[in-house]
Design a protein around this nucleic acid. Structure first.
Lengths: 200, 200
DNA sequence: TTTATTTCTTAAACTACTTTAATTTTTTTG
DNA sequence: CAAAAAAATTAAAGTAGTTTAAGAAATAAA
């Protein structure tokens, strides 16, 4: 049973990687050998502000949120991650400096992780992975850019609709207060928007 | 005279590059040989939506803005670039797909550019430049992340103050309507904020 | 240097969103 | 399964930011 779960998770990450680069069976095996599995219970943290982000993390099962706490002590969700998404604090990971973010499991979750030094080794032995992680960074960059752009030109209702359209899975799965925080509005206002759009 | 201008601009870009990677005189010369100089008059475009971004561009003199036009036909400034800053549409450049952005000179400007294929050649001959451009991407990513985070937790006045603090040069140099667009507010409201903060 | 054009300012009326607070519903825990 | 805790809803009053419109100031063009 335990073995089966591990198999599942590695199959999942290999499928994900193979969307961007092609690997031989040997390379796959080598990559897998560098990964560490981890389970995180709901409300536990994968990362806390002040800690250095030591892993890039692939979510096999569950759901997590990245957030930071502003000067007034208010939490702001920056991004969510569910099955087959990567998470972490890329800047903290790359520079190995303390993060300003928290990553909290919203559900009991299973992840696989690759540490900084394992990744460096991987780059040297299978240079294709340089490309893979550069592509991850590029994709993250473009997603951020689109978010900034969309935030500049849309009101809360449009942003909520776009969120549901882009992440249909998340609408049902994540507490509304977390979605509101991600959208930059209050839960009360989101509730009102929902009632309004339901009526239509 | 012409020669002198070229010398100036290449010295500027080499200083910039050497902040992130160290180059031998030979490597410097080779890098310079791949660059193309260009002058752009005020109100002219370095890039237009629909075009593929064929160059990474380093600004030697002048000032440019990146913007996009939303569905209602409204322009939104996404970023500015002045002396020693890089500009372009990174995603369009990397994927060689059409851009959704315009890059317009706000002043008569001088830039140096490196084309996609020259950059690939450069990567092969001087791999250090892979690192350089990865760092550029990372820095751009982090800047975007901070902007998203800041936008979530600050009102217009705080965003304006932070903008002036972070880019003191730009406050005087760029039309207020462009700063307002970057901040996501109307020029009228920015004008009101300025009067309010001047009074203090 | 004058004219034309663009940008900035001001102010009043308006709208999107927040705040506060009370109530209901859902989820979690013992 | 009951009690406790957390999340969602509703509504009223308040505030941050927009819209519209007109005049003043600055900049560009002739």
């Amino acid at each position: 049973m335990y073995i089966w779960m591990i198999m599942d998770n590695t199959a999942l990450i290999l499928t994900n990687v193979s969307k961007l680069i092609e690997l031989s069976p040997d390379e796959e095996a080598y990559f897998i050998s560098l990964l560490q599995s981890k389970t995180i219970k709901r409300k536990d943290f994968l990362l806390q502000a002040g800690d250095v982000c030591r892993y890039e993390t692939f979510v096999c099962k569950g759901c997590l949120r990245n957030y930071y706490i502003d000067n007034e002590g208010v939490e702001h969700n920056t991004v969510f991650a569910v099955e087959s998404w990567w998470t972490g604090d890329m800047y903290s990971f790359i520079t190995q400096t303390p993060s300003r973010y928290f990553i909290e499991a919203l559900e009991d979750s299973e992840v696989v992780q690759i540490g900084k030094s394992s990744l460096e080794t991987l780059y040297q032995n299978v240079p294709k992975f340089e490309r893979f992680f550069r592509l991850l960074l590029q994709n993250a960059y473009v997603a951020q850019e689109q978010r900034i752009v969309h935030n500049l030109s849309s009101n809360a209702e449009e942003r909520y609709t776009a969120f549901l359209k882009r992440y249909p899975q998340l609408g049902q799965r994540i507490a509304q207060k977390h979605i509101a925080s991600y959208l930059g509005i209050t839960p009360e206002f989101l509730s009102m928007l929902r009632r309004k759009t339901m009526a239509k």
